[in-house]
Design a binder for these strands. Structure first.
Lengths: 195, 195
DNA sequence: CAAAACCATTGATCTATGTTAAGATTTCAC
DNA sequence: GTGAAATCTTAACATAGATCAATGGTTTTG
């Protein structure tokens, strides 16, 4: 009754109506996997063939640019979906690295299994449309915030949205998420404190 | 046989299988509308209650920041969908203004009609999931390009992707899309030409 | 058709953040 | 447990792009 799939089934049944049979199909579409700290679930340049639901742990999805700098696109925590969505659905090279920030437990699925799942459980097709729309809306906000506000304004906003973020991930990852270097982040915090 | 809905029905039937009845339902879900140059289809701060398919003309979706600067999130041309997706689906205040760059003809629909449409024509639910996923993937790329590249690199990339963009929209709109001011854009082009 | 509004360009200066370098502290691996 | 690696901080300097201001050209509008 209490197994490893429960967080996923709870996540789904909190959002859409599913019956016993749907749950069975869902369970059969996902495989448990554990990755160690620093291990990559998917790699920039390769095709990201998985989409995963985080059970435990934390991850960062980041892009390594031509100058060798890393840019965190988003973090992943329990109940989050992680993937390079462009690579996953269009079978193109991934822009992102999906890396565990600590030992992380996942339920992973593949493109074919997900498409099959959407056909067999149409309510899930709807759920994923809605999730993707919310992600798009959130990224639009983040993009506009990035082009119109300074790093300290973005930092204060982040703290409001995720007050415990500083406990969850190291500072230089937060800097990278904010789009600045650790040195600038240090400076920024000092200036904020001196007020 | 040849009516105002044809571009939309072509757009859809090029992507999914629809029968005669589906087409009828689709037509009933959209209303033609024409807006004049500079007119706003939806306004920042208000709820964006429409999602629209562009038949003819062009638009820009932009955010007006606290300092009074405008930031173009995207342009819209024939066969594009325009809306503030967050506002539309979550009934929250829109971040964006949707403005016509010239006289523009649209087919517009509402939240309730779209949700009904998705229920009556499930293949459309799938189509919109896929469109949204592609938009999300494209915005991720744009975001990463914005935080990792200089304005001239982004400009050259834009020219590759949309070589005729300079004919379609005025320069200061392109500057705004690139995330810089018209003055910086002028200078940037001069520097590129002097090589 | 003329006045007004808008648009592109240039130059001088300013500012947020990057760059480089160094030292202090914490964490990790053998 | 100890040395190596990773992390955080500070400081001096560099730079992309913003800001402010002025000019001439173009479109819009009454």
């Amino acid at each position: 009754m209490n197994d490893i799939y429960d967080p996923l089934l709870n996540y789904i049944s909190n959002r859409i109506k599913v019956n016993e049979k749907d749950c069975q199909i869902i369970k059969e579409s996902f495989t448990p996997k554990t990755i160690e700290k620093k291990e990559l679930l998917f790699k920039q340049g390769g095709v990201c063939t998985t989409t995963s639901f985080i059970l435990k742990g934390s991850m960062r999805m980041f892009y390594l640019d031509k100058k060798g700098l890393e840019h965190v696109l988003y973090f992943g925590f329990p109940d989050w979906w992680v993937s390079d969505i462009g690579s996953f659905y269009q079978h193109t090279p991934s822009l992102l690295n999906g890396q565990a920030l600590e030992r992380t437990e996942l339920l992973i699925s593949t493109y074919d299994k997900m498409e099959e799942l959407f056909t067999e459980v149409p309510a899930l097709e709807r759920l994923f449309r809605v999730i993707t729309q919310k992600n798009l809306a959130a990224l639009q906000q983040r993009f506009l915030s990035t082009v119109s506000e300074t790093a300290d304004q973005r930092y204060l906003k982040l703290l409001k949205r995720a007050p415990n973020i500083e406990q969850l991930v190291p500072q230089h990852q937060i800097a990278s998420y904010l789009g600045i270097l650790p040195e600038s982040f240090s400076r920024l915090k000092r200036q904020l404190h001196s007020k």
